[in-house]
Design a protein around this nucleic acid. Structure first.
Length: 776
DNA sequence: GCCTCACACGTTTTT
DNA sequence: CGTGTGAGGC
């Protein structure tokens, strides 16, 4: 009995066809990861291929981690020599070694979307571009899409000739690339593009990697963009042992440049390719699979395939409709609770999938209310939180002084009295002397003479220099670990106090900082040598889905995109409405491809379900403070009625009414009038809707906050309190700062400005109507 | 340089 | 609806 006996015929063929290009068309749930991992085991165990000659590429760290685990089990000795990694991580490894050949320093940093935006803002200012006509987002999008297609600055400029708008983009593109190079930074797209550039300009480097990676496997191949395809093509060009695995029906990243032609035209690029189809589904029951097939069948131009299962009919697809999104959330939470209680399900067996992250909120609130354990994947990435970015910017500055975005971010956090004017002066000086902004700060004394501003910069520069010096110390003497470094930074800059003044979330934020320290500790544990550069790189390349722990017994809430590659016994797809899913943009577009992509997304969602699939619809939904009335999603309507337990109402079945439903009826109906459908759901009107949102606390300020509330709701200016019930020299208490003594009260046109010396928090100046001070 | 208020703007989706 | 940004006062 060998490990290959459990594979079906097609899987076996995929495993044993090791020479030449292979296109493995693997439908959802057809065991493609099994096929891939066994293929790697077969190459090494049966064909005598050296482990280091194997490269397996995935899209997320999570997928890479899972594959690594399974390969380790199957291969045993030498498994750690196999490169199992994401596109980005693999390219980073290559670039760290060779990017100096492209004029970058090997210690370069990675810019995330936030950093890109910051750079772009600066460029628009510098080039005097009107950001009303040319939005930063749009400019970045066109640069990104150019990079996805491997169009460099020069080529872009050539293509822009004669087109004013494009010419502006070209100018911005050039400036953007120059800025990044100056800052010794790459953005996500550069990571791929620069690697291709490296391979094309340094044949000997390419050759060394071709020799190294004689057997290449690519997972989720349908999501590769042109740059990624070119990268793979170059690497595989010598030995042509390339096995790509994908499903054109699950291609959902067109918006990010994924080129579906890569999979559809694979046989054109590699005419000698063996094509193998995996069509047996091991995941879902028949009803679910039939529904999936029915929906995806509406797409044109797909590779012909039909999934089948021997798991039996199973349950019909559940369809439930609700008056509004609150009831939808209530039902989903309730249904999960019922499954856990009555059917012995675990929370972690249930996932709620939706189109947009914004939908998570209502669901989350409902689950909090029910005390149900849940986990939201995505939304705001941990590493894009303000406090994390601040700390990382300190680390980046210590690590790479050329990263101007990082330096600018923190030079005045916490406040050091260094404003834009000072930075401009420094910037000019830096440009003139061809040095970095940070270097200019180090020389600040020479620039502005004995000006006060130079003195303000000194402690900052000293702080950074101090940490740099200590990091340069030899190992196991004085050199601090990254975790210690973070702790010391926060302490020395007084970050906790800064956060306390910043807003009311200081406790959450400090917890996040603590979490970052945890991550630094676990980084140290999983690596033999600690490198700040490497730590920052790992941190830059994590996706939200990477942090999902499948062992936690919690309901998972995530977007349909995040759900790709996962499976759950019970799946809820919420917000099945035309206008939301498929999205408004896709419907309005005259490019039918857009709705097709949404349909593939629906297909991905449906095929996540193993046993139970529930689709929900809300007639009324608040979107950005506006009430929308939508028709039942066309994707629900594409599922034959006999596969579902509830019929889609007639009114949504004809095309006409669907179109009518599409138009937004804001204002046409009274918003306060609940659209109750008679006696079907009597509790709808009785339930206090407001209670679902966490109530905002206005502190103990009594009259003052009431004044504020009343004032705000009428849109009138805030009224100054008639008189204060405390005076100079008296003791007062504050919600955040505790007790203190009033030093000064100043009358201002609209308010009183009160200076208080707090026992613990020190001296603060605040406005009476906001501070909610109470006499003690 | 800092702080406040007013308003404009946005949503797909993410390595 | 919530956030982020820019103008104007202090």
């Amino acid at each position: 009995m060998s490990i290959y006996d459990t594979l079906n015929r097609e899987q076996k063929q995929a495993v044993t066809t090791v020479d030449g290009p292979v296109l493995l068309l693997a439908g959802a749930g057809s065991g493609k990861t099994r096929a891939l991992t066994h293929r790697i085991a077969y190459l090494i165990g049966e064909m005598g291929v050296q482990p280091w000659n194997v490269l397996a590429i995935t899209f997320t760290n999570k997928a890479a981690g899972e594959m690594r685990e399974r390969v380790d089990e199957l291969v045993g000795f030498g498994a750690d020599q196999i490169w199992v990694s994401t596109f980005h991580a693999a390219c980073m490894r290559i670039l760290r070694r060779y990017i100096d050949r492209l004029g970058f320093d090997n210690g370069f940093t990675i810019y995330d979307t936030d950093d890109q935006k910051t750079v772009m803002k600066g460029i628009c200012k510098r080039l005097d571009i009107d950001t009303k006509t040319y939005k930063e987002r749009m400019l970045l999008a066109s640069i990104s899409s150019a990079k996805d297609k491997l169009i460099g600055v020069r080529e872009y400029e050539l293509g822009a000739a004669g087109d004013y708008q494009k010419a502006v983009c070209a100018k911005v593109y050039r400036e953007y690339q120059e800025t990044l190079q100056k800052n010794n930074a790459l953005d996500f797209d550069d990571i791929i593009m620069k690697t291709v550039e490296l391979f094309k300009s340094c044949p000997e480097v390419l050759d060394s990697y071709q020799e190294r990676f004689r057997y290449i496997m690519v997972d989720e191949y349908q999501d590769t963009n042109t740059a990624q395809f070119e990268l793979i093509r170059l690497l595989a060009d010598k030995y042509r042992n390339l096995c790509v695995v994908g499903d054109d029906d699950q291609s959902i990243y067109r918006f990010r440049g994924a080129n579906i032609r890569n999979i559809l035209d694979f046989e054109k690029y590699f005419p000698e390719a063996t094509v193998i189809k995996l069509e047996q589904n091991y995941r879902s029951t028949q009803y679910i699979l039939d529904a999936a097939n029915a929906v995806i069948g509406n797409n044109e131009g797909r590779k012909d395939k039909a999934l089948w299962t021997d798991r039996g009919a199973g349950n019909r697809v559940h369809f439930r409709q609700f008056d509004n999104a609150y009831e939808e959330a209530e039902f989903i939470a309730g249904d999960i609770a019922r499954k856990v209680k009555k059917e012995g399900a675990h929370y972690k067996d249930c996932a709620v999938l939706y189109r947009t992250n914004a939908q998570a909120r209502l669901l989350e609130e409902r689950m909090i209310l029910e005390g149900m354990p849940y986990n939201v994947v995505g939304g705001t990435n941990f590493y894009s939180r303000m406090e994390i970015k601040d700390i990382l910017a300190y680390l980046k500055t210590i690590d790479n002084g050329r990263d101007e975005v990082a330096v600018r971010r923190i030079v005045n956090v916490p406040k050091r009295g260094i404003g834009p004017a000072t930075l401009d002066k420094l910037e000019d000086y830096a440009q003139l002397h061809d040095i970095s902004l940070y270097e200019a700060m180090r020389q600040a004394d020479d620039i502005m003479g004995v000006g006060r501003t130079a003195a303000k910069l000194r402690p900052f520069v000293q702080l950074i220099e101090d940490f740099r010096r200590r990091l340069a110390e030899p190992e196991d003497t004085e050199k601090p670990a990254i975790a210690e470094l973070i702790g010391e930074i926060t302490k020395r800059i007084g970050y906790e106090e800064y956060l306390r003044d910043y807003d009311d979330n200081d406790e959450d934020r400090m917890e996040n900082v603590a979490e970052l320290i945890n991550k630094a500790v676990s980084y140290r544990e999983s690596h033999e040598t600690e490198s700040l550069t490497e730590f920052l790189e790992e941190v830059a390349l994590v996706a939200d889905i990477d942090n999902v722990d499948g062992n936690d017994d919690r309901v998972l809430l995530m977007t349909l995109h995040s759900a790709k590659g996962l499976e759950f016994p019970n799946v809820y797809m919420a917000g099945m409405e035309d206008g939301l899913f498929p999205g408004f943009m896709a419907i309005a577009s005259d490019d039918p491809q857009e709705v097709e992509e949404e349909r593939r997304l629906a297909y991905v969602g449906i095929t996540r379900a193993m046993n139970d699939l529930t689709l929900t619809y809300a007639q009324m939904r608040m979107v950005r403070g506006e009430t929308q009335y939508n028709a039942v999603s066309r994707f629900v309507r594409e599922i034959p009625a006999q596969l579902m337990d509830n019929a889609v109402p007639k009114k949504y079945r004809s095309e006409e009414s669907v179109l009518a439903g599409l138009s937004r009826l804001t204002g046409a109906f009274s918003k306060s009038e609940p659209l109750s459908k008679g006696g079907t759901l009597p509790k709808a009107s009785a339930r206090p809707r407001v209670s679902l949102r966490p109530e905002k606390t206005f502190g103990a300020g009594g009259v003052d906050s009431l004044n504020r509330l009343a004032g705000v709701s009428k849109g009138a200016p805030v009224q100054a309190p008639e008189a204060l019930d405390y005076g100079t020299g008296e003791r007062v208490s504050h919600v955040k700062f505790g007790e203190g003594t009033v030093l000064k009260i100043e009358r201002e046109p609209r308010d009183y400005k009160v200076t208080v010396n707090f026992d613990k928090a020190g001296q603060k100046i605040m406005y009476a109507s906001f501070a909610k001070l109470k006499r003690v």
